[in-house]
């Protein structure tokens, strides 16, 4: 696609450039909605659209008031705190359990591997609304509905499949001879684990943990059912904000979240490269 072959006909040229324009439009469709909210979040007036002052680049048309609102409003600050508490604890639980299970499942001769894998990744398969309703009934009955414990457990459940998949991926094609040779050189099983297996799976564990964190941080269906105002997270607050009184503070929050996801994306990409370098895999 980079260079057109010399036998290209004029129609071929036209089609090629038309195609590039179409692709450009599709990329615009993908990225434009995310970009448009950023300037709008600096709007001085409480509208969701560009005011004439903004279009004429008049400084009075811009302000940081919505960011100020976000950083001072106790509703939002509580949400930020809760989001981090819930995401951190559920990430810890899901990363620990998910990594253990991935190690177990990747060992040779594991019985009923496919079935068990299917069960373990079921939280990713079942539609969220059904998981949310099921947990809502169950947690209400055991008095966990509307508690941090309940929300953290629910999020940990939703996040484990991602950890499991990410760690399993690093163990695919894992050379068993590495552990065997370590053992034959006299390393105890624990030592083999920490010196051979841990360095190999670390990128998978970290990227799984990042996925788990983002899953919990972004999760909005289950928290609406299992959580209450006291466990409000950023998505919870955004959802009720959009439903009830929509204010441009939501745009400020959305812009901040977009910047955070850009950072996450960079982390994941760096990890992926590191993993490939470590294992000597080159993508062409």
């Amino acid at each position: 696609m980079a260079k057109l072959p010399p036998y290209t006909t004029p129609a071929g040229y036209t089609w090629h450039y038309a195609y590039l324009v179409i692709c450009g439009l599709i990329f615009m469709f993908l990225i434009f909605p995310l970009m448009v909210i950023m300037p709008l979040s600096f709007n001085a007036s409480p509208y969701f659209t560009f005011t004439p002052e903004m279009l004429s680049l008049d400084p009075t048309g811009y302000s940081l008031r919505w960011y100020q609102d976000f950083f001072t409003n106790p509703n939002w600050q509580g949400a930020v705190k809760n989001s981090f508490i819930i995401a951190i604890f559920s990430t810890l639980i899901s990363t620990f359990l998910g990594t253990l299970a991935a190690l177990g499942l990747s060992r040779p001769n594991f019985p009923f591997r496919t079935t068990i894998m299917g069960i373990l990744i079921s939280p990713m398969i079942v539609p969220l609304i059904i998981s949310a309703a099921g947990m809502y009934f169950f947690y209400s009955r055991i008095n966990l509905q509307g508690t941090f414990t309940g929300v953290i457990l629910a999020h940990a459940i939703l996040a484990t499949p991602f950890v499991l998949i990410a760690v399993t991926a690093t163990l695919v094609g894992f050379d068993r001879n590495l552990t065997r040779s370590a053992a034959s050189l006299g390393a105890a099983p624990m030592r083999v684990f920490f010196r051979i297996i841990v360095p190999l799976i670390t990128p998978g564990v970290i990227s799984g943990a990042l996925f788990a964190f983002v899953t919990s941080f972004d999760e909005v269906v289950v928290i609406l059912f299992v959580g209450s105002y006291r466990q409000r997270t950023i998505p919870w607050q955004m959802f009720s904000g959009i439903r009830e009184q929509i204010s441009p503070t939501i745009l400020a929050v959305a812009s901040i979240l977009t910047v955070i996801s850009i950072c996450f994306l960079t982390c994941i990409e760096l990890l992926r490269r590191r993993n490939e370098k470590h294992r000597g895999i080159r993508t062409t």
Partner: peptide, 9 residues
Amino acid sequence: LPFWTSLLV
């Protein structure tokens, strides 16, 4: 980037 951005955003 859209894939990683919050659904609500």
